[in-house]
Simulated assay, not measured.
Amino acid sequence: MLASADDWLTARKLRNRMVHEYVRDAAELAEALNEGHAMVPLLLAFAAKVAAYCEQRGLPTG
């Protein structure tokens, strides 16, 4: 379901950094937010594939 496991791990590391660390440097925060925004297509594609998988098997998606 994932195009790249490496991209997924990168997204997870970014998520952990943004959630568990208080970023004081505005430039670093802006960079992290831009990186997060760049990950949106990866997350949307994954969610669509999971939903399609569930739908094909008659599983609830909501």
Rank of each mutant, 00 (worst) to 15 (best):
R12T: 08
M18Q: 08
D7S: 12
L29W: 03
A38E: 13
R24L: 10
L42I: 07
V23Q: 12
L9P: 00
E55R: 15
M1T: 11
A38I: 03
S4K: 02
E35F: 01
L14R: 04
H37Q: 14
A48D: 14
E28Q: 13
R17G: 00
L59P: 07
H37W: 10
R17M: 07
H20F: 14
D7P: 01
A27M: 05
A38W: 07
D7N: 10
A11K: 04
W8E: 04
R57H: 14
V50E: 08
E21W: 00
P41Y: 06
L9I: 06
A3M: 05
T10N: 15
L14N: 03
R12I: 12
A26N: 06
A32R: 02
L29I: 00
T61S: 06
A32M: 14
G62T: 11
R12N: 08
P41A: 05
A3R: 11
P60K: 04
A3Q: 13
A5P: 04
A38Q: 12
R15M: 03
L42G: 06
E55C: 05
D6W: 00
S4N: 04
L29P: 00
A38T: 07
P60H: 03
L14S: 04
R12G: 02
E55A: 14
D7K: 10
C54N: 15
R15S: 07
K13D: 09
R12Q: 14
A3S: 13
A5M: 12
W8C: 01
P41H: 05
A11H: 11
N16R: 09
N34M: 10
A26T: 09
M1A: 13
A11G: 00
G62S: 11
V19W: 01
L42N: 04
F46E: 06
L43R: 12
Y53V: 01
E28M: 06
K13Q: 13
P60V: 04
E21P: 01
W8Q: 00
A32S: 09
F46T: 14
Y22T: 11
A27D: 13
A27Q: 12
L33T: 08
N16Q: 07
A27C: 01
G58H: 09
V23T: 15
D7Y: 01
A26L: 04
M39C: 06
A45T: 15
H20V: 02
Y53L: 07
N34I: 00
G36L: 08
A38V: 05
E31G: 01
A51E: 15
V40A: 09
A5E: 15
D7E: 10
L42A: 08
G62R: 10
E35S: 05
A51L: 04
P60E: 06
L2D: 03
A30D: 12
W8V: 09
F46I: 07
R17C: 02
A5D: 13
R24Q: 07
T10Q: 15
N16V: 04
M18N: 03
H37R: 15
Q56H: 05
H20Q: 05
A51Q: 14
D6H: 06
L29H: 03
A51G: 02
V23P: 02
A5R: 15
F46V: 09
A47K: 11
A27R: 07
L33A: 09
L2P: 05
D6S: 05
E21G: 00
E28H: 04
P60M: 07
A3G: 15
H37F: 10
L42H: 05
P41E: 07
A26R: 09
T61G: 02
L59W: 15
E28V: 10
